[in-house]
Write a protein that binds this DNA or RNA. Structure first.
Lengths: 371, 371
DNA sequence: TCCAACGTTGAATCAGCTA
DNA sequence: GTAGCTGATTCAACGTTGG
């Protein structure tokens, strides 16, 4: 949504494409402040092999275990810092990032994110409903992966579709632990030999929840470790623009083919539940101006303990208090704040009616005739 | 088991006591290679700012204690490295450690553990069955904490009671995500004023599972951030020796009293009761996320009188009505309530199929491997 | 004594706009 | 930048009160 036009004008973003190359180089070639969301599934560094990403190209001759271990972590950390910095540069000021990992790498990644200035919003556990068991019985079944959701900086006004997520969860606030199956069956992409095309293909359900919750239609979503393109596939279905970066030709090929066959859902289905916050603000004074409430008319608190009078300027006056509907409600309740819209009622035909009903009438009129 | 006699001979360990002082100093005063397991619940460095109120205007009693305040990440990292090093020195070669934390600190702690030479065995998610909600609707409910289980070094022959844990879990391999309630009710210790004695008391069930799985009777368990002594209490019940370190006199006092009243279980009572699990709740949104139903797909009422469309967030939209499967069903029927699962059908191969069939599929997957 | 209604609480990085 | 005002927002357990 919103202010993505400026950057696009200055430098046409390569939308809905898969870019070939090292993700750090490619991200550095993109304009700063141009991307709404980044989803990153970086190498997990499972065995700390030297073949990962090695900026200095030096080959480590392991002589001593401790030293080798240290240098390997260091190499991984350098790589992590580099791609996180490149990613942060291209994020819009209100942009956000998701990174997924396992215990092998996620602690280093999370610390690097905090050090880079990202502001962690939640860590989210993907609890796999069908994980691989621990065959040797030497440890617990490794049944989850960890995702870190962070904004570009502490002050970022990040996107969070609270109501949509609540709807996805049958009316109960979504928690930080998500139960979803791993990617297998028909969804799991195979290569020409019939074996899996990518070792760690993520399920579309995971990306669905991420994109529905933290992006809006039309947003630009970038994935620096695109793989077989799950991020792009879900983004396309959901009417978001994607940018994929992948240096392995085999993966790009599989992803291209996959994306070609994806169709966007129709617009109506992409509408999600919104919160009251998103609705237009209606000043209380408007109810008086429009004659929906008369100056001098009495309002009653929900709990029937308090009575006040409406004044011509849309303020309320009671015993020893006057001010806005919110201020007077808070003062009478001795509360730090009060939502006057849901606190006050008026009388019609002998019945108590919440004033919020009048606001809803005005809002309904506004949507009938916008502007 | 275990060769703990040697160290004890040279320096009598202060077993089953609470030691007063800074945990780093105290640990440094203990002999090296002398402890079987360490459980650590260090300060989380929450960095809370203003007050937080619930929607009913009551104020959240936040963790604002001085012991949780650090001036910067750097300060926190120095503290973390120091206590982790002191802890590692006193661990036996085959010893192990558990550290618990939240996203505020756990990534820094995990990275520091790897840097210090600990070998991570699992990260374990404590999924709280009754977490505090996110009152402002700005993020996901922070419904879990993360624990890191690590051995002193890669080559350590750590203790893992696979079979005991499996029987704790009704015969199924224990996973890395544990569902346990937070500590409240009678278990929550109060001070003389009737308020909570410690802001972050951990549930005994958590320590029970940790000690059963990774220690043996007679092992020495050390807790450098003892607080009100949950680790000691469970250790005593389970016939392990404990060493607590706590610098706050108030906490020590509460813990002393608590521990005095604890009795060791006889072996028979170590059996845990297994309760039948209720059928897991499956949100309708999950059918959409998983692609079992597409956004835009049409659903039909059982009586064929109504038709609606599925949206990306798991809500339905029809003529003049939108909401959850239950809400829309009730609205269209003019009924006070409606079970959407049995009310709606979708079409497959020209036949009407109840959506409840899809829920049953998901439940079947879940019960293949319950936690 | 029991049940329903109501109140309390928990490791929390919890607002956005206008002047 | 910041001061001020509007006004949006909660789930599961446990405990207490009142009939």
């Amino acid at each position: 949504m919103k202010n993505n036009t400026k950057a696009k004008e200055a430098f046409e973003l390569p939308l809905n494409q898969i870019l070939d190359g090292d993700c750090i180089d490619v991200m550095n070639s993109l304009p700063e402040n141009s991307v709404d969301l980044i989803f990153a599934d970086p190498p997990y560094n499972l065995q700390l092999k030297g073949d990962l990403h090695r900026p200095d190209n030096s080959k480590v001759d392991a002589v001593d275990d401790d030293w080798d271990k240290f240098s390997s972590f260091e190499t991984y950390d350098r790589f992590t810092k580099a791609w996180l910095a490149a990613a942060r540069r291209i994020l819009k000021p209100n942009g956000a990032i998701w990174v997924i990992g396992s215990y092998h790498n996620i602690f280093r990644v999370g610390a690097a994110m905090q050090d880079a200035g990202y502001w962690i919003l939640n860590d989210v556990v993907w609890r796999k409903s069908n994980p691989m068991p621990n065959f040797r019985g030497k440890r617990l079944t490794n049944a989850h992966e960890t995702m870190i959701w962070a904004s570009k900086e502490e002050s970022s006004k990040y996107t969070f579709n609270y109501e949509a997520l609540k709807s996805l969860n049958e009316g109960i606030q979504m928690r930080s632990d998500w139960v979803l199956p791993i990617c297998n069956g028909h969804e799991r992409l195979k290569n020409d030999e019939g074996t899996k095309a990518h070792p760690t293909q993520k399920p579309e359900s995971l990306l669905h929840r991420i994109l529905v919750s933290t992006t809006n239609p039309g947003d630009v979503v970038l994935d620096p470790f695109f793989g077989t393109g799950t991020t792009g596939a879900v983004a396309k279905k959901l009417g978001r623009d994607y940018i994929g970066i992948e240096r392995e030709a085999d993966y790009r090929k599989v992803a291209e083919k996959r994306l070609k066959n994806i169709r966007k859902f129709d617009n109506e289905s992409l509408q999600v539940s919104t919160s009251k916050r998103a609705e237009p603000r209606v000043p209380f004074g408007q109810l008086v101006e429009r004659g929906m409430l008369q100056p001098g008319e009495e309002l009653y608190s929900m709990n029937k303990r308090h009575k006040v009078k409406v004044r011509a300027d849309g303020t309320l006056v009671g015993v020893d208090v006057k001010g806005s509907i919110h201020q007077v409600g808070a003062a009478l309740e001795g509360a730090p704040s009060c939502n006057g819209w849901t606190y006050w009622c008026f009388k019609r035909d002998g019945k108590q009616v919440p004033i919020d009903l009048l606001r809803q009438q005005i809002r309904a009129e506004m949507t009938e005739r916008p502007n």
